[in-house]
Amino acid sequence: MGRVIGFELNSQDPEKAAEFYSKVFGWEVAEPHWDYREVATGSGVKGIDGGIAKGPHDYPFGTRIQIEVESMDESIAKAVENGAMIVRDKMEFDDFYLAYLVDPTGLGIGLIENKR
């Protein structure tokens, strides 16, 4: 089962967004890494963490959930078979793979496969 493990807030002014969410909701926002700021939404309480990023040209602003999958390749194939569009195909990072899709209704999602 694909589990929602995070979120990504895309903004053309990520510094201002980070300041807003930090001041209003007490989120802990890390320094940028790859123009992405990790966000902790609750210290010691259950919640979903995520990040704030400068929105790329293909998704300049908005919110995407991140869904953990067992197999990136199988999940992308199944999503496309069911009407999704690939925005950014499988990308490799140190500890995980990441891809961005748009579902058949136009909602943006991220897929994450952790390296084992």
Rank of each mutant, 00 (worst) to 15 (best):
Y36H: 15
L107P: 02
F96H: 14
K23W: 00
L111E: 13
G2E: 13
M1P: 15
K46S: 14
A79P: 12
Q66C: 11
A79T: 11
F20G: 07
T41A: 11
K115V: 11
G51T: 01
D13W: 01
G62C: 03
K16E: 13
P32T: 14
K78E: 13
E68R: 09
V87C: 05
A18G: 14
G2W: 11
G6P: 08
E68H: 09
F61P: 01
I52A: 02
D49K: 03
S22Q: 10
M85K: 15
A18S: 14
Y97Q: 09
L107A: 14
G26I: 01
F93C: 06
D49T: 02
E19F: 10
K54W: 02
D95R: 06
D49P: 04
I86R: 12
S71P: 12
V24D: 00
L107W: 02
V80P: 07
V45A: 11
E19L: 04
S71T: 03
I112L: 14
K23A: 03
E15N: 15
S11Y: 13
V29W: 00
I112S: 01
R3F: 06
E70R: 09
D89M: 02
H57F: 10
I48M: 13
D94L: 05
A30K: 09
D58I: 05
E68N: 10
E92H: 05
P32L: 12
F61L: 10
Y36E: 10
D49I: 00
T41E: 11
M91R: 10
L98P: 06
A18D: 10
S71K: 01
E28Q: 14
T63P: 10
G51N: 09
G6T: 12
N114M: 13
G83D: 12
G2L: 14
E38T: 09
D49F: 02
E28S: 12
K23P: 04
E92R: 06
D94A: 08
F25D: 02
A17P: 09
M72T: 12
V24K: 00
D103Q: 04
E81F: 01
R64G: 01
G26P: 00
F93E: 08
E31I: 02
D94R: 08
G106R: 07
E8S: 12
D103L: 05
A40S: 09
E68V: 00
M91H: 04
Q12K: 06
G55N: 02
Y21M: 00
P104C: 12
T105S: 13
F7P: 03
E31Q: 06
M1D: 15
K90S: 07
G42A: 15
Y97F: 15
I48H: 09
P104S: 05
I67L: 15
D35V: 01
W34R: 01
D58E: 05
G2D: 09
E74P: 08
S71V: 08
A77R: 07
V45P: 02
F25V: 05
G2Y: 09
W27T: 01
R116K: 15
S71Q: 04
G55Y: 07
A40V: 00
E113F: 04
G51K: 01
D35M: 03
K78D: 14
K54C: 02
G110W: 02
D58Y: 07
G50H: 00
V29M: 00
F93L: 13
F96A: 04
E15H: 08
